[in-house]
Simulated scan of single mutants.
Amino acid sequence: MFVLRPSSQRGSADHGWLKSQHSFSFANYYDLAQMGFSKLRVINQDMVQPSMGFGTHSHRDMEIISYVLEGNIAHKDSQGNVRTLPAGEFQLMSAGSGITHSEYNHSNTQALTFLQIWIEPNIKGQAPGYQQKDFGQNEGLTHIISPNGAVDTLQIKQDMHLHQLILSTGQSTHLTNTLANQYVHLVSGKLDVNGVEMGPGDGLKITDEVKLVFKSVDEEAVQALVFELP
């Protein structure tokens, strides 16, 4: 079964320094029908003005993924990590028993755009953790996150997987599913998934499908995130 969530139906917020689009209920945006999907709780597309950002705040028992689309994030947390996250890299912060952190736009001239993604963990109360990696821009599906950190993936406290999908014009690839649910978030281009066409910002909830076939159907290259979820 496929349920398309068009980009135009996402919630939105404009705080001046921050403009955000919410795929699921978040902060002042509330939709009882959009409380998440399986263990995927949040996908926010955030655009942060130069030199602005999220001041020091805390999280507990949440797996938080950041993926930068444009610009750089300046990250600092209570575990002593002081890092810069450039476009194309993935960050996974395990809040565990509690962590405080700040995320700022590293530039004083250019806007920062990134995806903020929350996954509910299956293990709570453990020590916080931080991981960051550049997986490149290889065509096809690239395995980014897994429960056991296999094949140099980032390790998450949940039975789920995250893949980066990149396709040039006319190219296709497929995924044979091992978990009950999948979710596709399209960043750019136009994508056909088993006959369902997606545009930028769209989300696709998928259940009970054995195989997914991804096809690029536009001149612009496809960039997407593919979640396998319990």
Rank of each mutant, 00 (worst) to 15 (best):
G53L: 00
Y183K: 03
K133D: 15
L92E: 15
H101Y: 06
L69S: 09
M160T: 15
M47G: 14
D31F: 03
V222H: 08
L115W: 10
S51L: 03
M198P: 02
S25F: 07
Q21E: 14
A87M: 06
V187T: 12
T56F: 06
R60S: 14
F114P: 02
N28Y: 15
L69M: 11
G140S: 04
R60W: 07
G55W: 07
G16F: 05
Q223S: 13
M93K: 04
K19H: 10
K211S: 08
D46Y: 06
I206Q: 01
N148F: 13
F90I: 11
L225V: 03
K124R: 15
R10V: 06
D31T: 08
P128H: 09
P50F: 04
V217D: 10
D202C: 00
L4F: 11
M198C: 02
Q34V: 06
L175V: 04
A224T: 04
M93Y: 01
E89H: 10
F227W: 04
G53Y: 10
K39H: 12
Q131V: 02
Q223F: 08
F37G: 05
M1G: 15
K211C: 05
T84G: 09
P86L: 00
S107V: 06
S7T: 14
P200N: 11
S38T: 14
E70V: 14
N177E: 12
D218H: 07
A95W: 05
V217C: 05
Q164I: 02
I117E: 03
A180Q: 13
A13R: 08
T207F: 02
D46Q: 06
L191A: 01
V187Y: 10
Q49V: 05
L165P: 05
I123L: 10
M35G: 05
D159K: 08
Q79Y: 07
H59M: 03
Q21P: 01
I145T: 11
G71L: 01
Q131W: 01
D31C: 00
G55I: 12
F114Y: 13
S172I: 10
T109H: 09
F90W: 13
I73P: 00
L212S: 02
G170P: 01
H174M: 08
T207K: 09
E139I: 09
N44F: 07
F135Y: 14
A74G: 09
V151E: 12
Q155R: 13
A87S: 15
V3E: 15
I64L: 04
A224C: 04
D14Q: 02
L69G: 02
E70M: 06
S12E: 15
V68I: 05
E197N: 14
N72Q: 12
V196W: 10
V187F: 12
M1V: 12
I99C: 00
E228D: 04
F214R: 00
Q116D: 00
A127W: 08
S188H: 07
S25G: 07
L32F: 10
F227T: 11
T178S: 10
L204D: 14
Y30E: 14
Q171Y: 10
A13C: 11
Y130T: 11
S188V: 04
L229K: 09
